[in-house]
Write a protein that binds this DNA or RNA. Sequence first.
DNA 1: CGGCGCTACGTCCGTC
DNA 2: GACGGACGTAGCGCCG
Lengths: 87, 87, 87, 87
Amino acid sequence: MADGSASVEGATTVAADRLRGFIERVERLEEEKAAIMNDIKEIFAEAKGEGYDVKTLRQVIRIRKMDRADRQEQEALLDLYLAALGE
Amino acid sequence: MADGSASVEGATTVAADRLRGFIERVERLEEEKAAIMNDIKEIFAEAKGEGYDVKTLRQVIRIRKMDRADRQEQEALLDLYLAALGE
Amino acid sequence: MADGSASVEGATTVAADRLRGFIERVERLEEEKAAIMNDIKEIFAEAKGEGYDVKTLRQVIRIRKMDRADRQEQEALLDLYLAALGE
Amino acid sequence: MADGSASVEGATTVAADRLRGFIERVERLEEEKAAIMNDIKEIFAEAKGEGYDVKTLRQVIRIRKMDRADRQEQEALLDLYLAALGE
DNA sequence: CGGCGCTACGTCCGTC
DNA sequence: GACGGACGTAGCGCCG
């Protein structure tokens, strides 16, 4: 390979390595994600141990999230209207 | 079959007919659903033809829907709290 | 306004009514759609209650749908060929 | 309150703070989770940009995960046997 | 084991 | 016309 050309096997190896790279990066991130999900579970368990109702906690969190989403939507809508008036 | 018993083939046929029934009922409903989705698309096209911005229309509808959902969630949460207090 | 022209406010009102009309028509259709989806759910629940596997039923329906789509493509292709042959 | 006892309001405040703590910890973790999910999306987008089929990549990852789970089960079983044999 | 909530997939729309 | 982004729907796993 002194001529700098890649053999077919070389190209295949490179592609395989590339593929492996993508997959392993994703798998690593999924591990992190799983760890975080586990942390969340533990917090709920802790709260439950202090007498809080987990279902209600989840609902509160969901509503706060929806409120944030609503607010963002409202702002996006406002932007749309403003843009429409500015034309 | 004067004794009223069903042959094995008969039972299989019945089951197959039942299966076919479920599937065709669902397929019929999915056709109706597709027709409705098409109607919706046409309304948006009509609105667009009159100069309305479809994206904004969709956003308005989504927000109204989220508001309704939020309200329902809020009520569900209230019920939870009331139930918690009633224990 | 004896000339029949609408005031600016009138025009705005008309536009708002028109807008409201579009939105409510869409919302009405989405309700119908939701009702149909609910009907479908109930059929699957009924089937499940008789021992059928819902996931498999869904697969069957999906496959039949794809077959139908394929068939339509075939027919479209046939039409194309026939048209190319001068009918 | 020189005696160190908490007033009813104090207790309520403490509980509210505790509640707020749980909720904010979860919300923080959910943000991290969302960030990681976004990273994963980006990797898939990158792979797609190089011609890989994302759906297939996901399948590969899922299969590897199942294999890992199987292997862990095997190891757990092995441990069980070894323990049964008195180490 | 049944329901519920979350994730992932397919589809549609706007963009370049 | 392909691309990416957003939405709605379907599948899956956890919790009760």
